[in-house]
Amino acid sequence: MSEALSNGSAPILAVDEVSVSLAGREVLRDVSFAIESGEFTGLIGSNGAGKTTLFRVILGLQAAHGTVLVGGAPRSRRNPLIGYVPQKFQLDPDVPLRARDLVALGLDAHRYGIATPSRARRARVEEMLEAVDARDFADARVGTLSGGEQQRVLIAHALIAAPKLLLLDEPLANLDLRSGHEVVALLARITSEQRIAVLISAHEMNPLLPVIDRIVYLAAGRAASGTTEEVVRTSVLSALYGHHVDVLQVHGRVLVVAGEAGELADTSDHSHTQTQVEIVS
């Protein structure tokens, strides 16, 4: 069934007029966009723009107004069409779990009972490790891997269930430049090889610009989508932000600069300067 849906003309993901309020605050307002199979899409927005909330809506974990169709059907929890790679991932080095074990868990972790080992199963895990170039550290403990290596293992973990849509939440946030490039290149290759759609969120669009087909730009809870040329323009982004912003090209990099105040909106990495201070009782 999923084959038929994804091969047809219907987009693999259609988000239509989605609005979400959290704690009385409107986080997303009338967000609409669609993604076709085999497309590499960047979901761009600064911290708090609602990227993670949008992912939770697509995954069926967050209540929302509007409609979300995944593979032509209404969104649901436990949707085998979607693979998900989380942003946060911390595992102690002493946890006895090899990279290949984590990948194998991706196959059928929602099933009850212990997995029966089989040659097919091992071959499938091996194939996925190969696909993300993780053969070299397949037998190392996940907790001892570098950020980029862990990210690749997590991608394999998501891909092994053969999803049609891969969601990645800020995969580049904690990576150095080189590992970031490697992960982006890997994703671009997977997108074209396996004909799946990839939606990748980031607060910094420049590392993605060479590879993405489309962009969904989130700001102030609203979204603009299209090709990079269509979206990343002074007129479109100014309308989105609700005040004037300039889009500048500097040495092949795109900078989004707020108008009068001269405030940089999308050039620096905000995640390191913001620390959540919360007392949980």
Binding site: L59, R78, Y84, L105, A109, H110, R111, H157, A158, L167
Partner: peptide, 19 residues
């Protein structure tokens, strides 16, 4: 075993997979 394993290791992913 399996759902417990995944939700212990990667709670976000487990939730995303409908566990």
């Amino acid at each position: 075993y399996r759902p417990l394993m995944l939700s212990s290791l990667l709670p976000d992913v487990a939730e995303a997979r409908g566990i």
